[in-house]
Design a binder for these strands. Structure first.
Lengths: 179, 179
DNA sequence: GCGGGTAAGTATGCAGTGCACACATTGCCG
DNA sequence: CGGCAATGTGTGCACTGCATACTTACCCGC
C-alpha cells in the first residue's frame, strides 16, 4: 500500500476495506486503528480525519454489514409464511457464518447506540417485516441472531452429515411445531 | 480495599467479585486487569498468579454467569411444552436484562473456546434439554439469545405499557403459530 | 518449633494502543 | 495565482497486557 501523492485519494473507503479484511482476520477487539493505518499506508493518526474515533469506524463497518444482510434478505421469497421464515433465517445464518466477525460486531454493544448503525438496523427490520409481517419480526430476528451465535461459537452443531441449512430448518420447525 | 497482611487471602474470588461489578459498570472491553487489581487493593500483576491472562479471567466470569442462568432455568416448570418454552425464554431474557454485560460476555467470542466456558455451556444445554426436550433445544436457546440481544441493544422494544415477559411471550408465540 | 520450599504478592520494564495537539502539504476555488 | 480548508504527519501522553526478576510469609516435615 505505497503511494506517491501526499493525499491518499479515498482514505475513508480504503480504511473500510482494510477494516473488513483485518476484522475477519483477527476479530474486533484485536483490531487496532494503527494496524489499519499501516495497511492503508498512512500515518497512525490519519484515520481521525475521517472517523471521530475507533468506535465510529467500527460502527461504519457494522453499518456496512447491515446493508449487506439487508440486500440478501430482500431477495427472500416463498409460498407460505413458514417457508419465508425458514428461508430468511437460513440466509441470515449463512451471512453470519461467512463473515462471523462482522456479525459479532453488529451484535456487539459498540454499535447499538451509534446513529448510523441504528438506522441500518431499522432498515433491515423494515425489509424483513415486509416479507414476514410484523408479528413474526422479533422472533425471526431473534432466531437468526441466536442460531448464528450458537453455530459460530460451536455451542450447537448440525448433526453428522447435516447441512447448516437443514439444521436451521430443523431448529425453526422445532419451535414452530410445539402444540 | 486496604489490607494489612502481605497475602490477600482469597484474591481469586475477590477478583471475580470485583470483575462482576466493574464488568457491569463499564463493559467487557473497557475492563482492565489493572483496574481490577486496584479494586482488590493489590499490585497490577498479582492477578496473574490466579488467572493465566485476561481472557482466562473473563472466561471465569462468563462461566460464573452460565452457572447462574442454569440455576434459574433449572426451576422452570409448566404444564405444556409450549408453556415451558415461553417460561424458559422469559427467564433467560430476564437474566440478560438484569446483567447485560455478563450476558454479552457469555455470548462473545472470547469464551467460546475456553474449556471452562464450554463445559458450563454444555451443562446449561443439558438442563434446558431436560425441561424442553432435544428437538426444541436449539430453537429455545436461539430465541433466548436473540431476544436478549435485541432487547439489550434496543433494536426491539416491548409495546407501550407491555412488560418484557409479555413481549417475549408474544414473540415466541409469533413463531410458534406460523401455519 | 523451626527451617526451608513454595505459593502468593511486588517492582520494573517493554511494546503496543487510543487519542490530543501542533505542524506540514496540497488540491481547489475565487 | 494566492490563500484557505481539507487532509495528512510527528510528537507525546496516559494507559494497557504481560514478561521477568525479586520479595514476603504461610505451611509442612522433621
Amino acid at each position: 500500500m505505497e503511494r506517491a501523492t501526499y493525499h491518499h485519494g479515498d482514505l475513508a473507503a480504503a480504511l473500510l476495506a482494510a477494516g473488513l479484511e483485518l476484522l475477519e482476520a483477527e476479530g474486533a477487539d484485536r483490531l487496532s486503528l494503527r494496524a489499519l493505518a499501516r495497511a492503508a499506508g498512512v500515518s497512525p493518526n490519519a484515520p481521525y480525519r475521517h472517523y471521530a474515533d475507533k468506535e465510529d469506524l467500527l460502527a461504519a463497518l457494522a453499518a456496512h454489514g447491515y446493508a449487506d444482510v439487508r440486500a440478501r434478505l430482500a431477495g427472500v421469497t416463498g409460498d407460505t409464511v413458514r417457508d419465508r421464515l425458514v428461508a430468511t433465517v437460513q440466509e441470515g445464518v449463512r451471512f453470519a457464518l461467512a463473515r462471523p466477525q462482522v456479525f459479532r460486531l453488529m451484535a456487539g454493544h459498540i454499535c447499538s447506540t451509534h446513529p448510523a448503525v441504528r438506522t441500518a438496523m431499522a432498515e433491515l427490520q423494515a425489509t424483513v417485516g415486509r416479507t414476514l409481517g410484523e408479528p413474526l419480526l422479533p422472533g425471526a430476528l431473534a432466531l437468526t441472531q441466536g442460531l448464528s451465535t450458537l453455530l459460530i461459537d460451536g455451542s450447537a452443531r448440525p448433526g453428522a452429515g447435516e447441512s447448516v441449512d437443514a439444521f436451521v430448518e430443523r431448529a425453526v420447525r422445532g419451535v414452530a411445531d410445539v402444540s
